[in-house]
Design a protein around this nucleic acid. Structure first.
Lengths: 340, 340
DNA sequence: GCGATTTCTGTGAACGTGCACAGAATGGGG
DNA sequence: CCCCATTCTGTGCACGTTCACAGAAATCGC
């Protein structure tokens, strides 16, 4: 059994006008809740709308209004993000709530390939959105260029290093890393190292900088292992290297929770107890942090606040208000669990 | 330091025409890659496009074309889904890839509150999308009503029980349950029971049916415990009941991974080893499956395929092709781990 | 009872595109 | 040289709104 969709055509404002025996203008006023409509006309029009099943055509509306009342939310790198990073979901929700409050529709666009980039660029160019929130933009991202060229109000969650002057909201990685390291040192650890990751990104570099800030003159380069990615396997690798180089290590700051989880495995393999022999702290407060044994002490990413903040930055621009350049840095509370 | 966004107005096809010294029609032909344009005109127009920074206005285009070349992807219940269910991300990606291939833009809309429902309904009504993919629709979902009324091509991932006649893609719960039970029996278990859950939903009822299919004449109603929800606590409860009724039980099919995790706890409390004394299998291949000790043998949900399948169903309708009514059922591979 | 308001309604233009159609060039063939 | 087919180009209309404006109807003050 099959069905062929009968694409019945939509009722227009004109149909409503005819049905109610009034003009288009009056119907438009009713639809948009404007004053100067008599009670009788209003009633007739409302009945007619119901009868013909009228819904306003947004394409036509946004053509004449020059705006769509929608804001794009662009996610790059979805494979790793969507499937592993729980933050992205919360950022999404935070942004959605803020945009909802302002009666904007959030439209989430996923870039999963080169082809997607071009298509999304076309979509954005087309006037379907009034503003854009970009998550995890890459350096020299073509999407960024498109957005810039269009002069579309934009806000980044995090920010590519080449775009410091565009509005963004993020966290102070350096300061958070410093605070966390200090907290770890406060437990009395003597030989504290770090598994630094993704030093080519500013987040990775900043976390390392915060670590060295905290150590001060006690800093020992032999106690820093660098791995390419914020990943579990990289954590295993990094921890092995640290154990090899400095067997007396008794504290580790891993650049992310995933890295920390890997470190825990390497420590277990090496017969070290956590937090007995070695204290371990992570970063992100992701699902990893609660899943590991013992659960990780870490820094909480205010994901929902990041989304809401980015939305707010876009809304400000949409309202024509001045926007602080250089970005908004959110507070990151330390979550102390059992791993240190 | 602040910046006020200069909302410079967009170049139109008319501006390009003037710049290139040709007419709108010719520019339109170049933009849409149509034949019958002289080489000189084409060159002049391309230069003009570049010079004035023209990008086509999709709102205008979709107004006249009566389509937007976009498909909505609607997610309800985002809090639990986005933050816990890894499937949703994969479904999203699967759908995105399929739509990309057909040169459609996927537009993801999140419903997080009552207010969102109304706004999304308006958005869909407005002609911004040509079709809709709906994930996890509720029974009597208002969004579903809107979509039905608009006659918008739709596909569900999973399906609410009141909508059997709309296109959907899901899994064959009955067959999957039968296959899994047979696999469990093949390990040599003699007394295999089931913790059935959510028998008021078709997925729950089908899983039980598959179980009885596999058992055939060996089926013993005393070996089936029924619990209301796919939940951890319900699993604990159900397993206790089974152990009480049939202490000689040596195999259990739990209706979901969460239920299976609960069953593991009850078995541990009762001093039974898994898989030594009792083999346990779950369903879903969710995060639970890898988190438990021992990790669960279970049935994998083909999440990415569900997304791609739903996209394909929508695309078929968009092309005006006949669509199988009653839905598409996907194959579900068994993932055999250590719990049985 | 009449002008001055206030409230209400209808009309035409515009938004930026695609498309059908008409018409202008071009190029051959007779 | 003319006719016809082919290739190319321009024009007007339609899509469904909103908005400014003009004009009609009602209300009011004197």
């Amino acid at each position: 059994m099959v069905s062929v969709p009968a694409r019945r055509k939509r009722a227009t404002i004109h149909d409503v006008a005819v049905e109610a025996g009034v003009s288009r203008g009056t119907v438009s006023r009713v639809v948009n809740d404007e004053p100067y409509v008599s009670a009788s006309a209003r009633a007739a029009i409302e009945a007619a709308i119901e009868k013909v099943g009228y819904v306003p055509n947004n394409a036509a509306r946004s053509l004449v209004m020059q705006r769509s009342q929608a804001v794009g939310f662009i996610v790059h790198e979805p494979h790793s993000l969507f499937l592993e990073d729980p933050n992205i979901g919360e950022i999404l929700l935070g942004a959605n709530t803020a945009l909802s409050d302002a009666d904007y529709q959030m439209v989430c666009l996923i870039i999963d390939s080169e082809r997607d980039t071009a298509r999304v660029a076309r979509y954005l160019s087309g006037g379907f959105v009034d503003g854009v929130i970009i998550v995890s933009a890459r350096q020299h991202d073509p999407i960024t260029r498109v957005v810039e060229k269009l002069g579309l109000p934009t806000a980044f969650v995090g920010h590519p290093p080449d775009l410091r002057d565009l509005p963004f909201v993020g966290i102070d990685n350096r300061r958070s890393a410093r605070d966390l390291t200090e907290r770890l040192l406060a437990t009395g650890r003597q030989r504290v190292g770090m598994i630094a990751a993704a030093l080519d990104r500013d987040s990775g570099a900043d976390r390392l900088a915060g670590f060295t800030d905290a150590l001060g003159e006690r800093f020992d380069p032999a106690l820093v292992a660098s791995v390419p990615l914020y990943a579990y396997a990289a954590g295993v690798e990094g921890m092995r290297e640290l154990l090899h180089r400095s067997p007396d290590i008794d504290g580790v700051f891993a650049a992310s929770d995933a890295v920390a989880a890997g470190a825990l495995e390497a420590l277990r393999d090496a017969g070290r107890s956590v937090p007995g022999d070695v204290g371990v702290v992570g970063f992100d407060d992701s699902a990893w942090a609660r899943r590991t044994q013992p659960p990780l002490s870490t820094v909480h990413q205010p994901a929902s606040g990041l989304g809401a903040g980015a939305a707010e930055l876009v809304l400000q621009q949409l309202r024509g208000e001045a926007t602080p350049v250089g970005g908004l840095l959110l507070h990151t509370p330390i979550v102390w669990r059992a791993s240190a």
